[in-house]
Computed example of a mutant assay.
Amino acid sequence: METKNTPFEQLTITNRFMFAMVFSHKEIAKPFLEAILGIKIHELRDPEPEKTIEISPVSKGVRFDVFVKESGPNGEIIRSFDIEMQIEDTHEIPKRARFYQAMRDSEALCRGEKYFNLKELYIIFLCPEDIFGKDRAVYRFKNFEADDPKIEMGDLSFKNFYIFSKYREVAEKAIRDYMEYFATNKANTPATEDIDRLVKWYQTDSNTRIRYMTWQEEIDIAVELERQRADEIQKKADAEKARADEAEARADKYEKMLRELGKL
């Protein structure tokens, strides 16, 4: 998704930065999650926009657009939600969802803690286009036994994808209203009007503008580091191939010499 050449005042909810800022308000995130997942949330903790997880300096980290946890009556964690606004189809989104789940799960347990303590986790991607190409507006995934789908794995991990350009095809009105707003930027319900008011407020807030510029710089740096890492990997692969080609050439030359001497 390109953001550099877009004037800040024109950024809409589908910009990842604007989305993270708006959905960092739990009064926005809570009804949204209840609507698209069809659940009732007891208490939503303050969402964490642009939450970063780094396992080690040499491992790839993640930056969630919006990460939020649900608390129970006694303050215990019941469920977690990662909400991602994904404008560009990078052709790797399903694997990103897998990696995001792994990173979240690795952070969820302390050393020595039982796997039983892992809670429900929802990875939610909002996309403008149908990344699966099956002409559906909503895709909901969870793990089943391949030969008998009635048998659920029960790992409490769910991955949902909402294609908001297909909002007209969404049966559930509560979901359709949100998807329509993402697709058109037109607020037609109290919930989307609340979102739109925050978008317009952020568009005029000077502190948010500064945060956006910093965010964009961080993104640019991350992209450049990723490119440099990819270049290094390619250079190493090219060097390995060159060494292998050289070894093969030496072997061929030695074999030819042996044949000429009648040794083979």
Rank of each mutant, 00 (worst) to 15 (best):
residue 253 K to Y: 09
residue 141 F to D: 03
residue 80 S to G: 14
residue 82 D to G: 07
residue 36 I to V: 14
residue 191 A to H: 14
residue 196 D to R: 04
residue 190 P to M: 02
residue 53 I to Q: 03
residue 93 I to E: 08
residue 102 A to P: 08
residue 121 L to V: 04
residue 172 E to K: 13
residue 262 G to R: 08
residue 132 F to P: 04
residue 128 P to H: 08
residue 31 P to T: 03
residue 41 I to C: 06
residue 240 E to V: 07
residue 201 W to T: 12
residue 171 A to N: 13
residue 3 T to E: 09
residue 161 F to P: 02
residue 86 Q to S: 09
residue 80 S to L: 02
residue 193 E to D: 08
residue 219 I to D: 10
residue 148 D to K: 08
residue 130 D to E: 13
residue 210 I to P: 00
residue 234 Q to R: 15
residue 45 R to A: 11
residue 91 H to I: 05
residue 83 I to R: 10
residue 260 E to W: 11
residue 37 L to T: 06
residue 48 E to N: 10
residue 2 E to C: 04
residue 144 F to W: 05
residue 85 M to K: 06
residue 19 F to V: 03
residue 241 K to V: 11
residue 16 R to S: 13
residue 122 Y to I: 02
residue 67 F to D: 03
residue 189 T to C: 01
residue 215 W to K: 10
residue 161 F to Q: 04
residue 203 Q to N: 11
residue 157 S to I: 04
residue 264 L to Q: 08
residue 104 R to D: 12
residue 184 T to A: 08
residue 195 I to S: 01
residue 104 R to W: 12
residue 194 D to F: 12
residue 198 L to K: 13
residue 135 D to Y: 12
residue 37 L to R: 07
residue 247 A to T: 03
residue 221 I to F: 05
residue 178 Y to N: 02
residue 221 I to S: 08
residue 255 E to F: 14
residue 47 P to L: 01
residue 83 I to Q: 05
residue 168 R to W: 08
residue 240 E to F: 09
residue 241 K to P: 04
residue 1 M to T: 13
residue 69 K to M: 10
residue 194 D to K: 14
residue 249 A to S: 09
residue 245 D to I: 02
residue 179 M to G: 05
residue 263 K to Y: 13
residue 64 F to P: 01
residue 124 I to S: 08
residue 167 Y to T: 05
residue 205 D to W: 14
residue 13 I to H: 02
residue 88 E to S: 09
residue 147 D to I: 06
residue 48 E to S: 13
residue 6 T to V: 15
residue 8 F to G: 00
residue 153 M to E: 12
residue 163 I to Q: 08
residue 93 I to K: 06
residue 13 I to P: 10
residue 2 E to S: 11
residue 226 E to S: 15
residue 23 F to A: 01
residue 126 L to Q: 03
residue 204 T to L: 07
